[in-house]
Design a protein around this nucleic acid. Structure first.
Lengths: 189, 189
DNA sequence: TGACAAATGGAGATGACCTCCATATTTTCC
DNA sequence: GGAAAATATGGAGGTCATCTCCATTTGTCA
């Protein structure tokens, strides 16, 4: 996973085009209506090129997801540096809901692909989970959050939010989940 | 959705065989490794018969899911009739985790299919959501649970649990999610 | 029992996915 | 700068799962 070989110039260009186009199509929610071959044409490359760069739909999604996760992790670090721990955690989780709401198609597409039992996308989540772990650890140190529950549970709840994007009352319910999690995380008693 | 036409005897028999076999295959987790046509043969019917009864994999899953939901709803009613409201709610949610754990393959299969943006399975969840709504309403009446969060949020959290079945530490994290939800549901302050 | 309706099953059309390789582009080395 | 080696391209076509269609079988009702 460490050293990606130095890609040739045209290869790198095509790869970037594919990822950019994929993000676009994901966000529009049209990904599953599209033959994979047609996606290649849409991006202006041959099918062979598409398959060499991304052997499966999941591989493509993983690449898109990476960018997403990186941005979220940056936000987490920024919040942690500028706010008291408990507030940083709350702001991050509330912000996740905003973010998911703003990229509904993307979230839905990623959630769908994540469900296919490849587990490929789960690896991409590790960085995100680490960010949540850090936020929580800081809050525990401040005594604002219980220490007997770890980030995995929060990730599960977030996953539930992301996967349920077709519920009619999604936004309010998503906010409620975060409320429950945050209130549940305050030490009981 | 109301009046299912009276099925002919052989049709009903085949339908039942298909559902039974599907549950079996789901539970073994082999559903996606299997050509749909081969599933027909496995159940001892022709492909035409399979497709007439269940036009898609999702339709088949929905039928299996119905049975599952019905059983869970019965359990909810039983708990509600025999325990104080708050305990009934807690027992039900804890029991959901047990149930999912005991039918890992089934849960994973249903979660995967549910993610495919058909929303077909979501309808099947309505009865389950109603059961949770009832349990929560009773607990609110007892003053044991806050009244500003409704069942939808709990459903989301449960969905997250069911969808994340490949996490290495699944069981502990699932229990933690329930803990957070239950503690979050106690009135804050 | 006969006649009508409902259901069956599997052969074959359809179309998505992916491989393969002759050609084109980039890089390296003198 | 140019030739050889290495790397990447694209799209034609093979493969295989999905789904349709209808001649035949099975069940129902009077």
């Amino acid at each position: 996973m460490a050293a990606d070989k130095p890609l040739r110039a045209d290869a790198r260009r095509n790869r970037d085009v594919l990822i950019a186009k994929a993000r676009e199509v994901f966000d529009a929610g049209d990904f599953f209506d599209l033959r994979f071959d047609d996606f290649a044409r849409l991006a202006g490359v041959g099918t062979g090129t598409l398959y060499r760069h991304f052997p499966t739909r999941e591989a493509l999604a993983e690449a898109v997801y990476h960018g997403e996760v990186a941005a979220l992790c940056d936000r987490a670090r920024h919040l942690q540096a500028t706010l008291p721990a408990a507030e940083a955690l709350a702001a991050f989780l509330r912000g996740m809901v905003d973010h998911i709401a703003a990229h509904e198609g993307l979230a839905r597409t990623l959630a769908t692909l994540m469900a296919d039992r490849s587990g490929a996308l789960a690896e991409g989540s590790l960085a995100l989970e680490q960010a949540v772990t850090d936020l929580m650890a800081a809050a525990v140190r401040d005594g604002a959050v219980r220490d007997d529950v770890d980030a995995g549970a929060v990730m599960m709840a977030l996953h539930g939010i992301g996967a349920a994007h077709d519920r009619p009352n999604w936004r309010a319910e998503a906010d409620d989940v975060i409320t429950l999690v945050l209130d549940g995380l305050r030490r009981p008693l």
